[in-house]
Design a protein around this nucleic acid. Sequence first.
DNA 1: ATAGGGTTAG
Length: 731
Amino acid sequence: MLKLLSSTSRQIQTHLTSPCLRVTTESQPSSFVNSLSSLTGLAQRNHKSLSFYQRAFFFCGSSSGDAGDGGGFAEVEVRSGASETEAEVGAADASDSSAIVPSNPRLEDYLPVYKCLKLTLELVKKEIEISKIQGRFLQGTIFPRNKQGKRQFSALSLDESLSPAITNIISNQHWSKLKAHLQNTDPNTLLQQLLNSGADPELILRYFTWSQKEFKLSHSLELTFRILNSLALTKKYSKIRSFLDKFVKHEKDYSVSAIFHAIPMSGDSFCVNSILADMLVLAYVRNLKILRGFEAFKRAGDYGFKLSLISCNPLLSGLVKESENGDMEFVYREMIKRKIELNVISFNIVVNGLCKVGKLNRAGDVIEDMKVWGVSPNVITYNTLIDGYCKMGRIGKMYKADAILKEMVAKGICPNEVTYNILIDGFCKDENVSGAMRVFGEMQRQGLRPNVVTYNILINGLCSDGKVDEAVALRDQMVSSDLEPNVVTHNVLINGFCKNKTVNEAINLFNDMEKQGVDPNAMTYTTLIDAYCKDGGMEDAFALYNMMIDRRIFPEVSTYNCLIAGLCSKGDVKAARNLINEMVSKKLSADVVTYNILIDSLCKKGESRKAVKLLDEMFEKGLNPSHVTYNTLMDGYCREGNLRAALIVRTRMERKGKQANVVTYNVLIKGFCLKGRLEDANGLLNEMLERGLVPNRTTYEIIKEEMMEKGFVPDIEGHVYNVSETNVKRR
DNA sequence: ATAGGGTTAG
């Protein structure tokens, strides 16, 4: 809290905290004060952003120390909280106004004051020209002070003998003139001068960009951030944002700590520095340099910058998308530690991240945490959790999803369309279309209208269940209830026809799309291409591929993956390689699936050893092998009868934090069966059930064909699983 | 500045 000035003018000086204009004269400072007083009044009236409470104070003194009329100086300060009477020279008591002074003034609070002082100075100069003020004007300087009256920052010299010409040149973008000027001045020095002159930061920025390009140099981090600092002071945030965007894009070898070191050098407003750090983190995240953003987040803590949700929420979300879940949880805990107040959105991102990696219990805990922090979960929070259970849950997951639905209703949070869509999809994916239909009815009874997504989910569910006719009927029902089928609707149906061996019907639907004014997208083509590839019709597949290129629909990695898989299954590895090269030439790079296809084709040829080499190559390329990758390799080794190697792959997978899934167990169980080790296979089966994994059709086929037919009765701890039902029943 | 639902390839 600032202590307001009391009676004498000396004290006024010692308590100066806001910027002060100091004018030195050759003579007669006292008459100067009088003139200044009226000029400041004029400047204040001209400066609209000054509030009523901001008034000017004057002080004068002599350079030599005696009070005579020799050379002297006059100071004027515009500050908050003074009453009318104190605007006079050497004003008296102001103690009653103390409440108006901000307890924690920031530099930017004084910005209008700066402008006012600058205006005053200009007026002084003008007045001198027309000789209304006696005595010769020597110099005018505006500088901020601290409580002790000392300069806090470098003086913003308004003695602009250098700048007006230069700033004019810059604002008119007369670069050739500027270049001429720079024959005797170093571009770096000029930048420094500009910064010291208090010129318009936007102009300085313009010069900064031009000089870097023109002289192929890069200004130091400190100067760079001084510009950003002054832009922040003038609240030119969008300029800073676009600057940092470019900065982050072609950033050289700057380490995050070098950057963070430069920020406090550029100014010492905690607030401005934190804003700059915040915007830097955001710039990293927006340019998909998530890990760098994460590093900056960590460093910001060390440097004492306070980040906001503006950068932290996108960072959390970015980490979830990059599946850097450990880091996401770190940021979450750290935010709490640093007292960055999380909002619902922050929590929802965290819950979503945890759900996506199957940590459903942790997600539930976070929802409990929210309440402790006084944030209420909303529909989205619960929808996210329900979706987590639908997609990642184990035995009885739909029961659990239903239970959460009931819980949210009990808490007075009303389920919406999305809630029901998630549940309907959950039942469909659980191969329980009738359950899905039940929820569909329930949704309508609750007065919610199914939307396009609802129908798409159900149409897809019916198609996956082989009921393509019912799917078509549902599409018609959707149209009659005034909902327009979109690309997804068409894609889902096309896929339904493809998977049910009627590619011709699929092509008919594809042709229909045009008539209905729905544009096929890359996925439409990819689905059809895949169907032809699976059918062995590589010519037709490539015809479609060429067609999509003609129509400017750009093939995706998935498109190439389908074609590559088709070529591999024909044994045409050479053509597959060529296609990969073509893909690379289109700036697309092989993804995990591409590798899985290649690995699978090697394994099928009995070359699992070569396939493992590709696994290593994936790590070199920074790809994160999936369950499918490892399962495919294990399958390869199992087919070769090399169980030991298969188990080593499993260990490698688990070391990377991936737990065996149903397919892993199916592969291994089958491997052991083929070796005649039925007891061991049974052990794996039990292990799988103990871990809450739901056996699927393949599991049952293996049990039936490999175990039962060989006279072995699996002891699966009394688990009986009916494939067509959702839930496991225990006897 | 940021959060939840549907379609393809292994």
